[in-house]
Amino acid sequence: MPGGGPPVPRTWDELWQPGRLQPMLARRAPAPFSSPAYRYEIKWDGYRCLVFADPGAGRTFLQSRHGYDLTPLFPELAGVHRLLPAAAVLDAEIVALVDGRPSFAALQQRAGGVGRGARIPAAAPIAPALLVLFDLLGLAGAVWLGRPLAERVRGLKDLFPEGAAPGVAVSRGVEGDGAAFFRRVRDQGLEGVVAKRLDSPYLPGWRTAHWQKIKAEREVDAVVGGVVPGGRAAGVGTLLLGLFAPDGALHYVGHVSTGLGGEEARHLLGRLRARPTCPFVTVPARARGQPVVWVEPNLVCEVAYLEWTPQGHLRHPVFRRWRDDKDARACRLPAEARAGAPGA
């Protein structure tokens, strides 16, 4: 079996471990693909959640990926046990919807920005939470981990018919044409797709090729406005990136790690022109209290990212390549990012 992980629970007592059971994880696929052996589902942009629901005890426990109790943060989802005929362990994602679409920023607000340093206006409306179920791990004392995914999904749909309860839904998916499904997901601006083998077991805490995630990343060309030393071989640890507003001001949009060291770092530093002051409209929080080399905003790099945050920053930016063919002044701050940009 590919990959590895902790021992797989074999009995109900081993499975029913609120706060201790680990969810199954996905490897990253290099590109979208199609296969009749896989089921393709939306990669929901929310909090991973294992659900322990027991109608006999009258209790639902919502567990985060790392074992924390999410139930107090989402009390409207604490009644799953009322929908079940017997105790069950489920795998799910908690998402917050804004205009019918998942919003991670709205979810942070619901959770108080726990662990993410979110800065969300206090006056922002509270978004409703939705529990999206996608796997059945055990039911009525029976452990379902060894059953194939196709059977577990059928069992989940039997437990939760469409429209069975507000705030709870079963994740939809397609079989076979994963490439076309990915294009639809990407075009709708969603986070990506998870491909799951129809014959795969559920392996708590394991990351294997049974499940593969394909993120629908976007790309942007951004300007380097500062460098934080670090990384390997005393190289370049972090690039501070910006984009130009229509008035010509350079707004900070995020930072990326390059991993450059040695000759690569020296070559990069040789292309940058140092300056005494910060080129951004405001000094980024990422640069405060650290040694930063401010540079003239002339060098451009291509960055992949998931979405724009309400603060006008790139979410999960990843360095791709240098764009020596791109004029820095052509790197413009898009309208969707201007509302949250400082000084906008």
Results as ranks from 00 to 15, higher is better:
residue 30 P to N: 07
residue 26 A to F: 02
residue 23 P to L: 09
residue 34 S to F: 01
residue 39 R to P: 00
residue 21 L to G: 00
residue 22 Q to I: 02
residue 17 Q to P: 01
residue 17 Q to S: 09
residue 32 P to F: 07
residue 28 R to F: 09
residue 43 K to F: 05
residue 30 P to D: 11
residue 30 P to H: 03
residue 17 Q to I: 03
residue 24 M to R: 07
residue 33 F to Y: 06
residue 34 S to Q: 10
residue 45 D to A: 11
residue 29 A to F: 07
residue 42 I to E: 15
residue 43 K to M: 06
residue 36 P to I: 05
residue 43 K to I: 04
residue 33 F to D: 07
residue 17 Q to F: 04
residue 16 W to F: 01
residue 33 F to M: 10
residue 36 P to Q: 07
residue 17 Q to R: 15
residue 40 Y to L: 08
residue 24 M to S: 10
residue 42 I to Q: 12
residue 29 A to P: 07
residue 17 Q to C: 06
residue 25 L to M: 11
residue 18 P to L: 05
residue 37 A to G: 12
residue 25 L to P: 00
residue 43 K to S: 11
residue 32 P to T: 12
residue 21 L to K: 00
residue 34 S to K: 08
residue 23 P to C: 07
residue 21 L to H: 00
residue 36 P to M: 06
residue 37 A to P: 03
residue 22 Q to T: 11
residue 30 P to F: 03
residue 27 R to L: 14
residue 26 A to K: 04
residue 20 R to F: 10
residue 42 I to M: 13
residue 36 P to C: 10
residue 44 W to P: 02
residue 45 D to P: 14
residue 31 A to V: 13
residue 38 Y to W: 14
residue 24 M to A: 14
residue 20 R to G: 03
residue 19 G to W: 00
residue 41 E to S: 09
residue 26 A to L: 05
residue 22 Q to Y: 06
residue 38 Y to S: 10
residue 39 R to I: 13
residue 35 S to Y: 05
residue 32 P to N: 11
residue 20 R to E: 12
residue 44 W to Y: 12
residue 22 Q to E: 14
residue 26 A to T: 04
residue 19 G to Q: 07
residue 17 Q to H: 05
residue 19 G to S: 11
residue 23 P to A: 07
residue 22 Q to D: 10
residue 27 R to P: 05
residue 16 W to M: 02
residue 16 W to P: 00
residue 45 D to S: 12
residue 19 G to E: 08
residue 33 F to H: 09
residue 23 P to V: 08
residue 27 R to Q: 15
residue 19 G to K: 02
residue 27 R to F: 01
residue 24 M to G: 03
residue 24 M to E: 15
residue 41 E to C: 07
residue 24 M to L: 08
residue 23 P to S: 06
residue 32 P to Y: 06
